[in-house]
């Protein structure tokens, strides 16, 4: 429980720092920081999950089962699984993404399409790449 909280707190703080950095050092609109955080989080989740998945032979292949299994186990990887679920979950966000989409839908339709397609496609590609890298690591 503590590990999930720790990971979530660190992830949320990292997401906020990305937003701040994006605003102070670039002239990109605010939603691009969330887009970057979502893609990076998806990549990390893929790597971590692929790595944990590679360490154990699972009977079922349902997504996130490796994390679930390590979460219930007493092994040293339990903490890793919890930290991963907390940190990646905290770094990425769906609510801010939707709120940004709502505002973009009123004012900037082109950026709305960029945001949705970018997040979806790049997020999926990032998770897929991460799974591949994580599988190689294990």
């Amino acid at each position: 429980m503590l590990m999930v909280m720790l990971g979530g707190g660190l992830g949320a703080a990292a997401r906020f720092l990305a937003q701040e950095a994006g605003q102070h050092w670039t002239k990109l609109p605010g939603w691009t920081a969330i887009l970057a955080a979502n893609i990076l989080g998806s990549l990390l989740m893929g790597i971590g999950y692929g790595w944990l998945h590679g360490l154990v032979v699972l009977e079922s292949h349902e997504a996130l089962d490796a994390i679930q299994r390590y979460r219930d186990s007493q092994s040293i990887h339990e903490g890793m699984a919890l930290l991963l679920a907390g940190f990646c979950g905290g770094l990425t966000t769906f609510s801010t993404f939707s709120l940004d989409n709502l505002f973009l839908a009123y004012r900037k339709r082109g950026q709305l399409v960029c945001n949705i397609l970018g997040c979806l496609l790049l997020g999926i590609i990032a998770a897929w790449t991460g799974l591949f890298i994580g599988g190689q690591l294990a």
């Binding site: 989080g41 996130l64 770094l91 990425t92 769906f94 801010t96 997020g123 998770a127």
Partner: peptide, 17 residues
């Protein structure tokens, strides 16, 4: 709320599906 919702598990689930 930002941490309550997540995109990483969503994209991972989609890839596996």
């Amino acid at each position: 709320i930002g941490s309550f919702t997540t995109f990483s598990s969503f994209s991972l689930l989609t890839v596996q599906q």
